[in-house]
Simulated scan of single mutants.
Amino acid sequence: MNPAKRLASSLLLSLTVLSGPWSGVAAAEATPERNQRLVERAFANWSAGRGSLFDDLLSPTVVWTIQGSGPAAGTYHGREDFLRRAVRPFAQRLATPIVPRVQGIWASEDQVVVRWMGTATARDGAPYRNEYVWIFKMAGERATQVEAFLDLVPYQDVIDRIALADLSPAAPTGERQAP
C-alpha cells in the first residue's frame, strides 16, 4: 500500500475509533482530573491570599449544606446566602484570615473531596483551629453543590464569644474565610 493510502486508512480508522461508543472514556477520565486541578488551584490561591475561594469555585446558585447540629448547620441556597449567613458573621469575628492546610484532595466523576485544616486568630486573640471535609459536586468549572463537615463547636464558640457590636468598622469582609 502506498504511503498516501496508508495515511488515509489510518485517519479513517482513527475517526472510527474516536466516534465509537468508547470515545467518551477519555473525556470522562479527564473530568475528575480537571475538577481536582480546579479545586487544588482554588485552595492554593486561598492559602496564598489571592482571590476568593467562594467566588473562584462556587456557582452563584450553589447549594451548600453544613452537616451536624447547631445554628450554622443546615442548607444554604446560593453563594450569597451562604456568605451572608455563615461566612461573613464568622469572618468578621476573626483578626486574621483562616489559613487552609490541605491534607488531601480526591476526585471521582463529578465530585471532589477536600480534607483540610484551618487556623486563624479570633478578634479576642484566641486561636481558632478546625478540621474540615468538603465534598464538591462540579458542573463545568463550578461547584453546584457542597457538603461540609467540620466541628461546629469551635465555630459556634467564636460566634458566641465575640459580639458583632464589639467590632471596629475595619473588620475583614471574610470572603476568604470558611465556617
Rank of each mutant, 00 (worst) to 15 (best):
A4W: 03
K5L: 14
K5M: 09
S9E: 12
L12P: 00
V17D: 01
L18Y: 04
G20H: 00
P21E: 08
W22M: 12
W22G: 00
S23H: 09
A26C: 05
A28N: 11
E29M: 13
P32D: 07
E33P: 00
L38W: 07
L38N: 09
V39F: 12
E40G: 01
E40N: 11
A42Q: 02
F43L: 00
A44R: 15
N45W: 01
W46L: 15
S47D: 04
A48K: 14
R50H: 12
G51C: 05
L53R: 02
F54D: 02
D55T: 03
L58Q: 05
S59Y: 03
T61W: 06
T61M: 08
S69R: 04
P71D: 10
A72H: 06
A72S: 04
A73Y: 12
Y76C: 11
R79Q: 08
L83G: 01
L83V: 15
R84Y: 05
A86G: 04
R88T: 10
P89S: 02
P89I: 13
P89F: 04
F90A: 02
F90T: 11
A91R: 06
Q92K: 11
Q92A: 07
T96A: 08
P97V: 03
I98C: 12
V102I: 14
Q103V: 01
Q103E: 13
Q103C: 06
W106N: 05
A107H: 01
S108Y: 01
S108L: 08
E109N: 01
Q111F: 01
V113R: 01
R115Y: 06
W116S: 06
G118D: 05
G118H: 07
A122V: 12
R123S: 12
G125P: 02
G125L: 02
G125T: 02
P127C: 00
Y128G: 02
A139N: 02
G140C: 05
G140K: 04
E141N: 13
E141P: 10
A143C: 11
T144F: 09
T144W: 07
T144M: 13
A148S: 13
L150P: 00
Y155M: 03
R161H: 08
A163K: 15
D166N: 13
D166A: 12
P169Q: 00
A170E: 13
A170Y: 08
A171E: 03
T173H: 04
T173N: 07
E175A: 02
R176I: 06
